[in-house]
Write a protein that binds this DNA or RNA. Structure first.
Length: 480
RNA sequence: GGCGCUAUCGUCUAGGGGCCCAGGACACAGCCCUCUCAAGGCUGGAACACGGGUUCGAAUCCCGUUAGCGCUACCA
């Protein structure tokens, strides 16, 4: 009977996220990473990051960096790694050789081009090609000839003709027949390992206990389980998470617009909102709650509540959720993202951004939109009289400028110490009352003068945020 | 073609035999609040793919059909 302590050590899960560095972090990958991370956090486990960089063509350090940056931004930190699959070529090779030595795999001297010919032949007959040892393996004499000639060979796994089944943590029982799988190659003739071999070798070496990955890997799973067993290891728990689709129900791709987490960062999505949204895409806490802080996400996350069905990525809901976070997050946490967006807009300022953020955040769904509004408040040259603004001014006719002159007169009396929302509101209401002008016809022209549009925070707050001198100047110009 | 996976409002989902002539959220429409727009509140339309079973009773269990998707590489 193990002690409670050693039991914890024995059972603490080790999970991994294993992206290939393709140059960007896809939202589907990001969500897979998030699920792994949530599971590790929920169970006290370890989250390992492994970069599958064996595709030399596409893999560069820059591509890897994009993935690392994306995960860091999302707030999905790894406990171990990043490890690079390319560094383990020797072990992959050795594991394949072990299988060969144990009789669980065999040498295949057929060349790639000969294989292509076989495939073409099958195609001509309208039959699907499958490598079958009995049919395609070279005669012993020919094998011997090629061996003595020093010709290269690939190593094929001898797939057992037996049932291979597992209890998937999200799908339940899944079963395959070995005879439906062919003797796939595990080691290329150049000595490098094929994906399934490399993954199993790495997952064993890294003591991965739970493989949480996209369900496009379901059909790789029986092959990998066969490899685990042949290598003398118990397979890990598998949890296959559904895909993320575009609005047309097709696999999410560049056609659908933004698909990389970096794109969402640039669009002004907050990491907390992205995390929350992604977590709810294909997983549910089981209740009616939608806005879940990180601690709740972790506390409530279970593999069993992962959806089996693919989910459509709904950007509108993401933006709504981002707006929720914008409204509820303390200004302090918004400072850095807002500053980044202001930089992108080339807005420089020494001013304390907190009051500005407070003024506009409930009307913003993205940090980008929020920063644009701040820019207008800080810099009069950013004012653009939009359609609604023009229409309003036209509708009011002469009274537009006239009302602004009245306002200018009335507010000039307020000195800097009185320039706050409460006092300004009182002054404007007094003005409306004494002149008989409708309150809206006092307020709205100010809004247009200060922002160019008809939408903003309440006018007194707007005046306070823009400041006395600048407000009066804008009102003077628009009323002039 | 073969094998596998999947199937609740337009979308994300709750549901794991009676609490469901199906609940929440986004989106949409209307109303309230109101100097505008948001936010917030209220209201409305909107779904168990189809066909068979099992059962006193099925969105829930079983079988089939259909549809979608994945894999079927000396790619990952």
């Amino acid at each position: 009977m193990p002690s409670p302590r050693s039991r914890i050590v024995m059972t603490a899960p080790r999970v991994r996220f294993a992206p290939s560095p393709t140059g960007y972090l896809h939202v589907g990958g990001a969500r897979t990473a998030l699920f792994n991370w949530l599971y590790a956090r929920a169970t006290g486990g370890t989250f390992v990051l492994r970069i599958e960089d064996t595709d030399k063509e596409r893999s560069t350090p820059a591509h890897t960096q994009v993935i690392l940056d994306g995960l860091s931004w999302l707030g999905v930190g790894w406990d171990e790694g990043p490890f690079f699959q390319g560094a383990y070529a020797e072990r992959h090779h050795a594991d394949a050789e072990r299988l060969l030595a144990a009789g669980r795999a065999y040498k295949d001297y057929l060349t790639a081009s000969e294989l292509d010919i076989e495939r073409a032949k099958a195609k001509a007959l309208g039959a699907p090609f499958r490598f079958e040892r009995a049919r395609h393996e070279l005669p012993a004499a020919e094998q011997a000839r090629r061996k003595t000639a020093g010709m290269p060979y690939a190593i094929r796994f001898a797939m057992p003709d037996a049932e291979i089944a597992w209890d998937d943590a999200v799908h339940g029982h899944i079963s395959w027949q070995g005879r439906d799988l062919d003797d796939f190659i595990i080691l290329r003739s150049d000595g490098s390992a094929i994906y399934n071999m490399a993954v199993v070798s790495d997952d064993i070496a890294m003591a991965i206990t739970h493989v949480i990955r996209g369900d496009d890997h379901i059909s790789n799973t029986p092959k990998q389980i066969a490899l685990y067993r042949a290598l003398g290891h118990e397979p890990p728990v598998f949890a296959h998470v559904p895909m993320i689709l575009g609005t047309d129900g097709k696999k999410l791709s560049k056609r659908h617009g933004a698909t990389a987490v970096g794109d969402y960062r640039d669009m002004g999505i907050l990491p907390a909102a992205m995390r929350n949204f992604l977590a709810l895409l294909g997983w549910s806490p089981g209740g009616n709650d939608e806005i879940l802080p990180e601690s709740d996400l972790i506390a409530r996350f279970t593999l069993e509540h992962i959806q089996k069905k693919a989910a459509v990525f709904d950007a509108a809901k993401l933006e709504w959720m981002n707006g929720q976070y914008l409204s509820m997050l303390p200004v302090l946490e918004l400072l850095a993202p807002v500053r980044r967006q202001l930089d992108l807009l080339h807005v420089q300022t020494e001013r304390d951004l907190a009051p500005l953020i407070d003024a506009v955040k409930t009307r913003s769904r993205t940090v980008t939109h929020l920063a644009e509004q701040i820019a207008v408040r800080l810099d009069a040259s950013r004012i653009v009289r939009d359609d609604k603004g023009s229409q309003f001014a036209a509708k009011l006719g002469d009274r537009f400028a006239a009302n602004l002159r009245l306002v200018h007169q009335a507010l000039s009396v307020c000195d800097a110490s009185e320039w706050n929302a409460a006092l300004l509101e009182a002054a404007l209401k007094r003005l409306a009352e004494s002149t008989g002008v409708k309150l809206g016809d006092v307020m709205q022209p100010i809004r247009v003068a200060l922002t160019g549009g008809t939408v903003s925070e309440p006018v007194p707050e707007l005046l306070a945020v823009v400041g006395r001198e600048e407000s009066l100047a804008r009102i003077g110009r628009a009323g002039g």
